[in-house]
Design a protein around this nucleic acid. Sequence first.
DNA 1: TTGCCTGTTGATATAATTTTTCAATAAGGA
DNA 2: TCCTTATTGAAAAATTATATCAACAGGCAA
Lengths: 140, 140
Amino acid sequence: MVDEVLELLRERGHRLTKPREAVARALLEAEDWLRPEQVWEVAHHYCPSVGLVTVYRTLALLEELGVARRIHLAHGCHGYAPAEMHHGHHLVCRSCNQVLEFLGTEDLAPLIAQVSRRTGFVVEEHLLELVGRCPACQQT
Amino acid sequence: MVDEVLELLRERGHRLTKPREAVARALLEAEDWLRPEQVWEVAHHYCPSVGLVTVYRTLALLEELGVARRIHLAHGCHGYAPAEMHHGHHLVCRSCNQVLEFLGTEDLAPLIAQVSRRTGFVVEEHLLELVGRCPACQQT
DNA sequence: TTGCCTGTTGATATAATTTTTCAATAAGGA
DNA sequence: TCCTTATTGAAAAATTATATCAACAGGCAA
């Protein structure tokens, strides 16, 4: 899994380094999306010397390679999820900020095709965020 | 238009102030979404003394009232659009960052209803972002 | 294996954006 | 008009992300 990413890096002419491996590993083993700083905490475990700056750089690189996906959060900072995990969309609770993934990408295909036809855009990815209140937070 | 917002503010127990009116006016007359600083520039025109901090506070308040909608942009900062304008979604060009609005909310209604039923979430708003390349940027 | 070239890194500084603090101000009811 | 208190604006602080640059290390060639 991580190996495939490292292989991809090499193919594209990037060097294989410990920091990059650590960041890739941290992201890929995530159960959920992580904020850059959280990625850093985990990556740190694999490569103690890794700096936060490199985490940012590597996440951007992984996004470019299609391995990571950037998520836009309600409160302004960014999160990243492994790309294959994020073929679903997310559901954010406005109160407790929990994020639930749900599937349903195929429902959007016709819409995307239509938009693409009308605007000339090549749509490379999409993000559907539903914001609301989870069952627990509705009771407040 | 602005009057309705002011009325809504009063109904909810908020005070009617020049800065709030200026921010509401700036946002409502926008052709497109604006970043907080852009809102400030326009609001400034209606209330020269208004500070950027108040713009942030008022935008948050307007969002709470359902008058403004927060938009999550690719590069991390936020933008706001009048709520009624933003019943469409947006299409972001990865290269030049231009944002196009497009309609199609009704297509999502069944999906939202289904998710709501399955998860127990009350979905209050949604955001669909398509990211890709605009016709001009495809040629690079 | 050794050495070299150059892509990468990490620390620091910097930038950009948003939030907090708090004294002064002004809205709106009495 | 007066009083209470929500609201404001300026400055400071916090947060998040990026730029700079000398030191380092990956990987190819010899």
